[in-house]
Nucleic acid binder design. Structure first.
Length: 471
DNA sequence: ATGTGC
């Protein structure tokens, strides 16, 4: 394959074969996927063949191999021109995302209480595969969660109104219908609201370690040495089942629409088709589930902080990095209705965008980047003119498979190393911990520098871990 | 990511 360095932080994969648009990768040479067997750039090319794709098949600096679409991929299709929606462009963990809470205390004040706080968070945070959640629902309430998201959770007393002001879409994605969610998905989701899951999901107690933009940080409620909580989780078994169900339906339907894709994992259907609309309605339901999930974990963290440290936690922002959204964008002077897939990529609205919370209108949207255990996480902001439909990276990006990381790293040893660095670790399995070792990931500092260099976002603050509750 | 599989 041909890849052309177009400028700093920007590579181009010219059109060939069935590609309808070029590929554009925002990265440095060092960040390009290089691991043996990593087909991410081939996947960027495959995505470029989707019906209705507009401008380019984009990849963010943390791009790596995924199911059909690369993780770190962004693709928009023109809905009026037969553009498609593809479950593989969202990912199995629908609306997986990050929420950042800012404590009204500094790290020095928390230090003497940190261990007992971590014990309580560790004991009370449901996590690991298949385990239950903190909110026990009946079927009727689950349907309300699927339609109402974090807003329903807050209405039921799990949070405060201001939380919703600081959620993407005010905590609820419209267009969700529980009727499009299978019985099996509902069963899997029933007992998991308020749970982390496993893999790279976590709840971290962090401290603000550096501030790059003082006024933006202040507007977001952040200052040096302040304690924060970062929650990274998604829609659990419910979202996974929805993805599985709709991939199957679309795989069978594609030929009826005359759609051919280079990889079956890119199964898709026109956004206006029955299959496309059904997926969108189910995807929105999973997105609302994920938002309620993060809202319930927020309330659990607030109780733990209140009891042990007498601290409150204010929501900075809640943003998804696995979602397809209906958005209108200016393309060659005309407003087009697009279906924007972001898979392992984060929306980054620029200052002045009408969808921003009023008090962040001049700042831009907070973008939350979870780093790797023991390294940094970042708060970024959207910038004017941001490319790739106002999108940027979502995390460090994996460079070694789970399998290889588990083979090379000893989980107990990793925990001891982290504790040595004063990071308290509450793991759920040694293997799971090993799979998430820092050496399995790209350098998150380099990833966010590349995002900034490519004009996709700007850095606001860096956060370092004090303690991690690992999924 | 996932009751780590069809």
């Amino acid at each position: 394959m041909e890849i052309v360095e177009e400028g700093p932080f920007r590579f181009r994969i010219p059109r060939e074969g069935g590609m309808r648009v070029p590929g554009v990768v925002f990265a440095t040479r060092d960040l390009l996927p290089a691991a043996a067997g990593d087909q991410a750039l081939l996947q960027v090319m495959n995505v470029a063949a989707l019906p209705g794709i507009v401008e380019a098949s984009y990849a963010m600096p943390d791009v790596h191999w995924g199911y059909g679409f690369p993780i770190g991929g962004v693709a928009a299709t023109d809905t009026a021109a037969g553009g498609v929606v593809s479950p593989g462009g969202v990912g199995f963990d629908i609306s997986c995302g990050v929420r950042l809470l800012a404590a009204d205390c500094d790290r020095d004040r928390l230090a003497p209480r940190l261990r007992s706080l971590m014990d309580i968070l560790g004991n009370r945070t449901p996590r690991g595969p298949g385990r239950g959640g903190v909110w026990h629902l009946d079927a009727r309430q689950l349907a309300e969660v699927l339609v109402g998201g974090a807003r329903y959770a807050v209405e039921q007393g799990h949070g405060v109104r201001r939380d919703l002001d600081r959620c993407e879409d005010a905590g609820v994605l419209s267009g969700a219908s529980p009727e499009q969610v299978s019985e099996r998905a509902l069963e899997r989701g029933l007992g998991q609201v308020g749970s982390l899951g496993s893999g790279n999901h976590f709840l971290e107690v962090q401290a603000v370690d550096a501030v790059y933009d003082e006024s933006a940080a202040r507007a977001m409620g952040l200052r040096e040495r302040q304690v924060c909580v970062m929650i990274h989780c998604g829609s659990r078994g419910l979202g996974h089942q929805i993805c599985t169900d709709h991939v199957r339906v679309m795989d069978r339907a594609m030929s009826r629409y005359g759609i051919e894709v280079p990889d079956r994992q890119l199964a898709c259907a026109p956004t206006h088709s029955d299959e496309g609309r059904a997926y969108f309605a189910a995807m929105a339901a999973a997105a609302n589930y994920a938002r309620a999930n993060r809202q319930l974990l927020t309330e659990a963290a607030r109780r733990a902080f209140g009891e042990t440290a007498g601290c409150g936690l204010e929501l900075v922002y809640d943003i998804s990095h696995n979602l397809a959204k209906a958005e209108t964008h200016d393309v060659a002077g005309a407003g087009l209705d697009l279906c924007v897939h972001r898979k392992g990529a984060t929306r980054a609205l620029p200052p002045g965008h009408p969808d921003l919370p009023r008090d962040l209108a001049t700042v831009g949207q907070p973008v939350l980047i979870p780093g790797t255990m023991g390294t940094s996480s970042y708060v970024l902001a959207g910038v004017p003119g941001g490319g790739a439909w106002h999108s940027t990276c979502h995390g460090a990006g994996r460079v070694r498979s789970r399998h290889r990381a588990a083979r090379e790293v000893d989980g107990r040893r990793l925990r001891a190393d982290l504790e040595q660095q004063n990071v308290a670790v509450r793991a759920s399995s040694w293997r799971g911990l090993a799979e998430e070792a820092p050496q399995a990931y790209k350098d998150v500092d380099a990833v966010v520098r590349a995002g900034e260099g490519a004009g996709l976002c700007r850095r606001v603050a860096r956060l370092v871990p004090l303690g991690v509750v690992k999924g």
